[in-house]
Design a protein around this nucleic acid. Structure first.
Length: 175
DNA sequence: TATTTGATTCTT
DNA sequence: AGAATCAAATAT
């Protein structure tokens, strides 16, 4: 079943952890592409020096200030579109970056830049409401992730964030 | 208006 | 270690 608004309207770290094992569904035409989320990363608030909201509300990050459950997609390094899911209440900028997925029933894992390419996710889907969209949403297919399988680690690719880069806000499922 | 800089990935 | 490649942020 599809995850509803109340799933996303919670503490960002909680959502990041519980998103592990869930299924990302991208519908293009009549085809559905499914991929299991195996790695996520949290970006929380204007205080977080790694978060795009660190300079306040801008045209790009405005969606993070909006409703939980919406997609925040942006272009990184001019090449890769990265997918985030907005969390917490309206007015508070926070989101969970989908860092890694495995396609079903395939096994190989791919990173944040490639998964959007494979799922045909572009900025055209920015601000898409995942609780209502016909094109992109997240499902719970009953797959259980044991607590002991969830690992936390420092965030990646944000050396400029100083001490904030060291926060263990990256979560993944142990193989 | 011009320059710098990335929530990445692949090549050398 | 560096390139690819562009939009947003910052400097001018």
């Amino acid at each position: 079943m599809r995850l509803e608004r109340n799933f996303f309207e919670r503490n960002t770290l909680t959502v990041a952890k519980e998103l592990l094992g869930k299924v990302l569904v991208r519908k293009v035409g009549k085809k559905e592409i499914r991929a299991r989320i195996v790695e996520t990363e949290a970006y929380i608030g204007e205080e977080d020096k790694a978060c795009h909201a660190r300079f306040g509300k801008t045209k790009r990050n405005a969606v993070m200030y909006g409703r939980a459950g919406c997609a925040y997609i942006y272009l990184c390094y001019g090449i890769y579109e990265l997918l985030n899911i907005v969390t917490e209440g309206k007015g508070f900028p926070a989101a969970v970056l989908v860092r890694g997925v495995v396609f079903l029933p395939r096994r190989s894992q791919i990173g944040p830049g490639k998964l959007t390419k494979y799922l045909k996710i572009t900025r055209a889907l920015n601000q898409e409401d995942l609780t209502k969209s016909e094109k992109l949403w997240v499902e719970d297919d009953g797959f259980k992730v044991k607590r002991s399988q969830i690992k936390s680690a420092p965030r990646i690719g944000i050396p400029y964030a100083g001490t904030w880069a060291k926060k263990k806000w990256r979560f993944n499922i142990e193989k």
